[in-house]
Write a protein that binds this DNA or RNA. Structure first.
Lengths: 244, 244
DNA sequence: CGTACTATTGAATCGGGTCAACGTCTGTGG
DNA sequence: CCACAGACGTTGACCCGATTCAATAGTACG
């Protein structure tokens, strides 16, 4: 992967919000993207409660968005993969109501907040894609809320693993059926509203049932069909090509 | 309330996304809003899984957005009050992944989907507000996910009631400290991932503790401070005035 | 008055949480 | 090279919050 990435050779150009752009639009996007930042695994990208936070997308690496209660209980809201906006929400709102931490080494593209309005004025297509991206992230959170509210432990874990596997797969992060999953069991527990211990035991049962292989961060789905039936899975819509 | 409502005299004009608009913009919005529909309490507004659904806002009344698993378990994702968009998500995506039901008699303004692109091209301010609205709805779902994932039953209920009371209050739906809450206990249970029975018993305890009064759909918050402490509440940002 | 829906309450049960101990691996410093 | 600490995963025992089953009211409605 080249050290100096420009929007012109960005491997994410096939995905929204910046898919199929060229000429004037591409030039704008390159000016809009004012910086690139690197984070280490475990590093905080956006501090929970920070009054203002940068506007950016994940270029490479994994991160997660979370909120913490005052006694330390933590809820992971969703996971961020390459192409995802980091906190579209807090950008538009005043203060960050949630934090974002890197799960792996991560590179992010930082955009110039002052040009956001120009984007809306002069590049309606990008504005539309931005809205679309925001709506899509809400769908993911919806999905997770259904899991945490209605599914039992094994179903929740099945659901999450299917979901992450499919997302990783769509981004070309899988090699011969194996996805490198940079999550600890505590992350899975916090995302699903389960205790660490119970997450561990449930993972064990799924492994014994031959439904998944998960070891040292390497995930292989053994029986996709069976796993989907267990989770009562019906996928999120694929990222469709937006308007026009 | 006048039967024939135009955007010009719309009582929601003080709220996003159509706040402070005038002249050309207002004219566009009036053309954009092609219809008005009425729904009865309990009626389905958007059928879960429908391939296409209208684009609209709630003008008056309450509704809720939900998803159902194949065995009937239902998760309520959020409640919709006047000024909320009905399924901004499914609009931008292909199919509706969730249903919307009316809780009360409800009036909705239906917009002309074909002009959505014109909105983005010619009215960037409206486009921005649309994105903002979408981001704000995600914050509400986030909030609910934190509750369902991390809070215990009494905390969840406290949180939900505070949240709905504040929203109702901001819309002028409270009279002398009492909000008319058109939810059954089953709705509360489904929103919070609790069983009906346990919801009932927890409500009883909150009532006995003098924290709330809830009877026949009339909600009064007895001890707001105490309730907020119980829920570990920190509010969502107020709807700020968007960009410019 | 019967039907149907919503609220209420008790009793039994269970999924998942909590506590606690132990193993494994890795890095670090004496 | 070994001792130790810290992070993470694993496993057992026990307990509790919440679910499920079940029965009873109250109320609206035709």
């Amino acid at each position: 992967m080249p050290t100096d990435i420009t929007c012109r050779n960005c491997p994410l150009r096939t995905a929204p919000p910046f898919a199929g752009q060229e000429g004037r639009t591409l030039a704008f996007v390159e000016a809009f993207r004012k910086d690139q930042r690197r984070y280490d695994a475990g590093q905080t990208i956006i501090l929970e409660g920070a009054s203002e936070s940068p506007l950016m997308t994940v270029f490479s690496g994994w991160a997660f968005r979370y909120r913490t209660l005052s006694d330390g209980r933590r809820q992971i809201l969703n996971f961020l993969l390459p192409g995802d906006f980091v906190g579209l929400q807090q950008e538009l709102d005043a203060a960050a109501t949630h934090g974002v931490d890197a799960l792996t080494g991560l590179v992010a593209c930082v955009f110039d907040r002052r040009r956001l309005w120009t984007l809306y004025e002069d590049f309606p297509r990008l504005a539309y894609d931005l809205t679309w991206l925001c709506a899509h992230e809400e769908l993911i959170v919806d999905e997770n809320l259904v899991s945490v509210g209605q599914r039992r432990a094994s179903e929740r874990i099945a659901m999450l693993l299917i979901h992450l596997y499919k997302r990783g797969s769509a981004l070309g992060l899988c090699e011969s059926g194996v996805l490198n999953l940079p999550l600890g069991q505590q992350h899975i527990a916090d995302a699903l509203g389960l205790s660490l211990v119970h997450t561990n035991k449930t993972l064990r049962r799924l492994r014994l049932a031959g439904l998944i292989e998960l070891d040292g961060g390497r995930l292989r789905i053994g029986e996709l069909g069976q796993l989907q039936r267990l989770a009562d899975y019906y996928g999120l819509p694929e990222r469709p090509r937006p308007l026009i």
